[in-house]
Amino acid sequence: MIKRILVCVKLVPTATSVEMDGQFRLKRDGTSLQLNIADVSALEAALRLKAATPDAEVVVLSMGPAKTSQTLQELYALGADRVILLSDPALAGADSFATAKALVAAIRCLGDFDCLLCGRRAIDAETGQIPGQLAAALGIPAVTNVQQLTARDNGFLCQRRLENGTAQLEIAAPCLLSVCEYTYPLRLPGIMGKRRARDKQVEVLTAVAVGLSAEECGLRGSKTKVIRVDTRAPGLRKCRYCETDVLAEKIREVQL
């Protein structure tokens, strides 16, 4: 029986272009934020598992600037039982290794869980590395790129999308599953949910509170370092607007 589902979510900039500071860190202030698109699927999957299992609890964990707590608070209205934000200026500039380390420290403070769900990648950095790093650090099995999942016995059944086909897998709990974008559309908050959310607060944890030392955090705790950033030049080709006869001619040329 499922007792607790953890969901890791990230708020990402809504803008298609972002700015960076002098140390090549993403400027997260001043840009509007939204729930990362694959994390939406992970959260909805968790809420569905909860709906199918009485007494199951959904705990949402996010890492980011303090101001993200406003957006995260709305997740209570959807049915999250606890929303936790790991937030500390010391964590800024973390690469995937340092991010995984921080999340693991926070997860260890939350107690046992049956399933850790996350999106398969974030649309800002697109590394998709956090799920694998979390699973290795927590010593639990993992399936990435999940397109469908259901609870079964002491584990989960899931469908994994691969380049050359689809794998149907059975995984034992506790485990990590990373979910694809658009797998499950997120529900809308109901009146009851909104009412319940009113008196709930996002629990904010600092790096020290989860037992992280300064050396383990942010840029200092990272294993990779951005040494240069170049702007990709737009408009590498000069477009000639034309009619279909010119295109047909081009196609014939290539066919020869």
Partner: peptide, 18 residues
């Protein structure tokens, strides 16, 4: 892309994606 992050964690090594 799932296996390498796990290996990177075990080796405590930096990993750059894609």
């Amino acid at each position: 892309r799932a296996i390498l992050p796990m290996l990177a964690w075990y080796l405590q090594a930096g990993l750059t994606a894609d």
